[in-house]
Computed example of a mutant assay.
Amino acid sequence: MPELPEVEITRRGIAPHLCGQRVTAVRVRQPRLRYPVPDDLVQRLPGQVVLAVRRRGKYLLVEFAEGCLLLHLGMSGSLRIVAADLPAEKHDHFDLVVGAQALRLRDPRRFGAVLWLDHPAAAHPLLARLGLEPLEPGFDGAALQGLCRGRATPIKLLIMDGHLLVGVGNIYASESLFRARIHPQTPAGKLSKARCERLASCLRETLQDALAAGGSSLRDFVHSDGSAGYFQQQYFVYGRDDEPCRVCASPIRRLVMGQRASFYCPRCQRK
Rank of each mutant, 00 (worst) to 15 (best):
S174M: 09
H163P: 02
R80D: 05
V28G: 10
S216T: 15
Y264N: 04
S224M: 08
P125L: 14
R55D: 05
H72L: 09
V37G: 03
Q259T: 08
L158Q: 01
L255E: 13
K90A: 15
V82F: 04
L144T: 07
Q185V: 08
Q30E: 12
E197H: 04
S250G: 06
V26G: 01
V168N: 05
V237K: 00
G162W: 07
G258F: 05
F263Y: 15
L127Y: 08
L117S: 12
L60M: 08
D92M: 04
I171G: 00
E205H: 02
L96H: 06
Y172M: 14
G112H: 01
T153E: 07
K156H: 09
L4P: 11
L41V: 09
Q48D: 09
I14C: 04
Y230I: 01
S174L: 09
P251M: 13
A122W: 11
I159A: 01
D95Q: 11
L4E: 03
E8V: 00
I9T: 12
R44G: 01
P125W: 11
L105G: 12
L132V: 14
V114R: 04
L211Y: 03
D39T: 13
R254S: 14
G138V: 10
F64Q: 08
P46F: 09
R34Q: 10
R219T: 08
Y35L: 12
D242W: 10
P16Y: 08
F236H: 14
H223S: 05
Y235E: 11
R181C: 06
T10W: 03
E243V: 02
R198A: 11
A188C: 05
L117T: 01
E8P: 13
L211K: 03
I155P: 03
I155M: 00
V256R: 07
Q30G: 01
S174F: 04
R270A: 11
P266N: 00
D92R: 01
D220Q: 13
V26N: 04
E66N: 01
D92S: 04
L51M: 12
A113E: 12
V168C: 05
Y59W: 14
D40F: 02
L4K: 00
Q30L: 08
D161C: 09
V98S: 06
A173V: 11
R11F: 10
L135C: 07
Y238M: 03
P120K: 15
D140M: 02
C245M: 03
A142D: 15
Q234S: 14
R11Y: 07
S192H: 11
D225F: 11
V49P: 11
R11A: 15
P266K: 14
I9R: 09
S227L: 13
G258A: 07
R104Q: 10
H17R: 06
C148H: 01
P31H: 10
R181V: 00
L147S: 03
C196S: 12
A113H: 07
G74R: 04
K271L: 10
L73Y: 04
H223F: 05
V62Y: 14
Q21C: 13
P46I: 06
L103A: 15
A52I: 06
V256E: 10
A188L: 13
A15G: 08
P31L: 12
V23H: 02
G138K: 14
G214W: 15
L70T: 00
R219S: 06
L177E: 02
L144F: 08
A65P: 00
A212P: 07
Y230K: 15
D85L: 10
E66T: 14
G20R: 00
L86T: 15
Y35V: 02
L79R: 03
A65Y: 02
A121R: 15
V168T: 12
R44E: 12
